[in-house]
Design a protein around this nucleic acid. Structure first.
Lengths: 188, 188
DNA sequence: CTCTTTGATAACTGATCGGTAAACTTAATA
DNA sequence: TATTAAGTTTACCGATCAGTTATCAAAGAG
């Protein structure tokens, strides 16, 4: 039907929440930054929490599409794509306005394990793990599930460290580590 | 002189901020949870930000003391202590009320790279890296600085993942990875 | 016995929080 | 043409935000 205003709101809210944090971004600030009236917002979303959940759904789709496509562009073997993940991350870290992972931030502002926002953030990470595990399996690594978890630990660590230290260097460090871990769990 | 009230405030504020987040915890909530009057708080700290900085200083001291002591208790060689770091982390992840790393949270709520809170969080990570690099050097690893950064990426990743997935399993995964990385960069 | 420090209590500031209400415009549809 | 939905503006709600002011009690130090 009408995809316009609602999607525009979610997109602009994503930027605002990403740059300022969820709690610190008030609905009045969203009115100012999106140009959309508060009444319209509350016609689309019953609460601020519902809006945040929609933002996270968009971000999940956005991020996975970007990361997996970029990995495929950079390499054509499963093992190569796993390593290319860290090149893609390095590109992300170098972007202006890089502020870390939205889901880590969300789960750290909404800490209750039963909170919908916390649960949805965890779900995003679970989907990523499924995909990476499949790649590790296709790469015929000895212990694909373990290697996938190891590489994802490196990914999360690099995301956090790049944000804290304001450098893209962790991507390269993580890539070297990933290569060594994949060598240690080489093909069956 | 008088170590009592001020330190008591900082300790209780640490708990409150850790459990509820910095922005989400108001000064009135601190009054309620610490039993210390607002006037007293503002006699010790000019602003909420100053209080948060004091909390982070305490947490930095607390965390480093705990981690390094625990690593020494669990192993007596430098290489063993590096691996023991992940056993210590596993114990931390299993604690009731584990909510991730306070500095990651702080830096993600105060994102401006020039913000004192952000800078102080980065400083904590830098001190950790210095210590771990020294251990890696003492362990006579081929590339001690690189291995230290790799292990710290695993550490940050495990901290974040344990919080999101509500399991201490990432500590064990990270330990296996750390052992493989140390083997790949074995003694000179 | 004062004096100063330390702290508590409570009321208050202006701003902002998430969310609501009423009146209105616009545009597509039936 | 009448209706409906989407959107606007403006004002408002009670609660809470960080921070202030004024007053009073207690206790250690000269």
């Amino acid at each position: 039907m009408r995809p316009t205003k609602r999607d525009e709101l979610v997109q602009k809210a994503l930027k605002a929440f990403y740059q300022n944090g969820f709690t610190a971004t008030g609905m009045d600030m969203l009115v100012k930054e999106t140009g959309i009236s508060k009444t319209s917002m509350y016609k689309h979303f019953r609460t601020k929490e519902d809006l945040i959940l929609a933002v996270l759904r968009l971000r999940d789709e956005q991020f996975r599409n970007w990361l997996f496509r970029r990995m495929e562009e950079l390499a054509d073997t499963p093992a190569g794509q796993l390593l290319a993940m860290f090149d893609a991350l390095g590109e992300w870290f170098s972007e202006d306005g890089y502020k870390g992972c939205m889901f880590i931030k969300a789960s750290s502002e909404f800490q209750d394990r039963d909170h919908p926002i916390h649960k949805q953030s965890a779900e995003h990470k679970r989907i990523l793990e499924t995909h990476i595990t499949r790649l590790a399996t296709d790469a015929q690594l000895a212990n694909p599930a373990l290697v996938a978890r190891q590489l994802l630990l490196l990914k999360e660590g690099a995301i956090v460290t790049a944000h804290l230290a304001h450098t893209e260097a962790p991507a390269a460090d993580a890539k070297v580590a990933a290569a060594q871990l994949m060598a240690a769990n080489a093909s069956v």
